[in-house]
Write a protein that binds this DNA or RNA. Structure first.
Lengths: 326, 326
DNA sequence: TTGAAAGCGTTACCAC
DNA sequence: GTGGTAACGCTTTCAA
């Protein structure tokens, strides 16, 4: 790879001048600039980002930390982030944390050591020391820290909507599934649904799942129909769990949505591909990724930010696991 | 962040000595080493990777280029790669190419400018100039270049297996769906199935799809049942397309697998979640990612490599869209 | 066994 | 307008 020195030599100027045209900083004569540009072209010169980063103590890299890219909710977040930062010339150092604090620390270390200009993290431990006294801005995605910049969906409202839609559709014996207790978003969904259910004149039943894994969800779904066969409406903690419930219901030849209605949460891409396709509460994952990137970019520019906790709207997506509202 | 100089000062030695204990290179007295280690500890010193990278002209970063992380096949590849390189201390610069040559070039540029030590790319253009005369090793993943290092599944064999299983299960009027022509793997699947079908005494019908997108697949599936309603076995070009066919079949109240059998390709995670769950040809995506990483690591060490094109086995996964073999 | 100093490719300051 | 050069934080000769 050609260096700035090669360009200087070819253009018969000093490296300082080359640097000036490169960064469009300071004066340089039109003719000189042209010569330099030509030399760059000919030598196919591209500045060494590492050297730049060393001197300026910041790179063109952004750190992205997600629990597990293999979980279908996260790729969309990632994609949203990337699309937003890409045109500004930023690139991603990416890692999966498995919700493991050590791994997160490890990646935060990597980020610092590589001079990233900012980080976006979907961590369950936003208040851990990992994330204190950083020299670069950070925004939490799909998570919230104590008045730290964050982008997340209005989960509680999502829970409320799910319950309201279920009631509106005339379910009488509702099962509310509670997700993993360590996830704030899961708790919010649950509490939102509870807000509505407890105020309604309706029978309901709470069941919990420890994880969002399909195999566990399958087991719990089987139990559900064993212990509470008369349920006619399930508000699931997310789409994976909802899928397991749907699966089990179909296996038992329960008619969906006539005998049993199901509402999921997230609207992961495959929810639409199920048969019957899954009614759910949509989180705008891609947009959330974009929004997080935008927020980070503003933070990087040190802009004054009135409200750095941005809450994204959720919406009921009506598909085929719910009946028409009456 | 503390620098090597701070450590040297605190330990009352020169930076050269600190560097020696850091890299375990050259002699250094036990007592000195202890002092240095202690100073590092106290200052919470972590070497600046950027400075290292500048001098050594190589980083601890690996470039990963995938078409679209939002497509459920790719996260598994990514995860396999990451898990393999993580414990060796390597990290990922990640980008989505959208199968766009410009974007790929763009990312390759980024990779070089950041001194990555190697790249793993799932490109459709392995022979493009983008990938020639690189100063670092590259391995193609899920793709092949002309005798370039690569890791990919045995798609042709996969096609053969799909066709054989379909015949074994007594399908009589088979529909073979041909995937996007620009994808080598799609062509291979198709040709493999054709190998078997054309040698068998059986009716079959070929239909093509231009993309692997669900909406297009839905349209084509609808057409299929319109123009060839008597088909009783569909060999789809991948699981997304198979899902669309299943969807359409269920909508038309065609009994699966009694009246219609379906075999997909890939075994993406959601294939198991469908109802009925999808029989498919599995590509070991996670393992492919791992294998690609391993190969890259060996290439980086300049090991002699007998066979740098590693073909991974595929297998028939029997689920509920096929009948029991007779 | 240790330290001084050059060099990695840039940028930015200060002269001219 | 332009060039010389110190500095960014590290590794690696070379000498002592």
């Amino acid at each position: 790879m050609a260096t700035i020195k090669d360009v200087a030599l070819a253009a018969k100027v000093s490296v300082a001048t080359v640097s000036r045209v490169l960064n469009e900083t300071g004066y340089v004569h039109e003719d000189t600039r042209a010569r330099v540009l030509k030399a760059m072209e000919e030598l196919n010169y591209h500045p060494n980002e590492v050297a730049r980063s060393l001197y300026k103590r910041e790179s063109r890299l952004i750190g992205l930390l997600l629990p597990d890219i293999t979980n279908p909710f996260f790729p969309q977040l990632a994609r949203g982030v990337e699309d937003e930062i890409h045109r500004l010339g930023f690139r991603l150092i990416f890692g999966n944390s498995d919700e493991n604090l050590e791994k997160e620390l490890d990646y935060m270390q990597t980020f610092k050591q590589n001079h990233v200009v900012g980080v976006i993290s979907a961590t369950n431990y936003p208040d851990a020391p990992n994330y204190q006294d950083l020299s670069m801005p950070i925004v939490f995605l799909d998570r919230t820290g104590e008045n730290a910049p964050a982008v997340f969906a209005d989960s509680r409202e999502g829970g409320r909507i799910a319950a309201a839609e279920m009631i509106k559709r005339n379910a009488k014996r509702i099962t509310l599934i509670k997700g993993p207790a360590h996830l704030q978003t899961a708790r919010d969904r649950f509490n939102g649904a509870l807000d509505v259910l407890s105020g309604a004149d309706i029978d309901f039943h709470v069941m919990k799942t420890e994880t969002f894994s399909f195999p566990e969800a399958q087991k719990r779904a089987a139990e559900l129909f064993g212990t509470y066969p008369e349920t006619d409406g399930v508000i699931a903690s997310n789409d994976i769990v909802a899928t397991a419930v749907l699966h089990e219901a179909l296996k038992r030849k329960i008619k969906v949505p006539d005998e049993l209605q199901i509402i999921g949460f997230d609207d992961i891409p495959q929810s639409e591909l199920l048969f019957p396709s899954l009614s759910t509460i949509r989180q705008p994952a891609y947009e959330m990724g974009k929004e997080a990137a935008k927020l980070l970019l503003r933070l990087m520019k040190n802009e004054y930010i009135e409200q750095s906790a941005v809450q994204m709207p959720v919406a009921f997506i009506e598909r085929q696991t719910t009946r028409k509202a009456e």
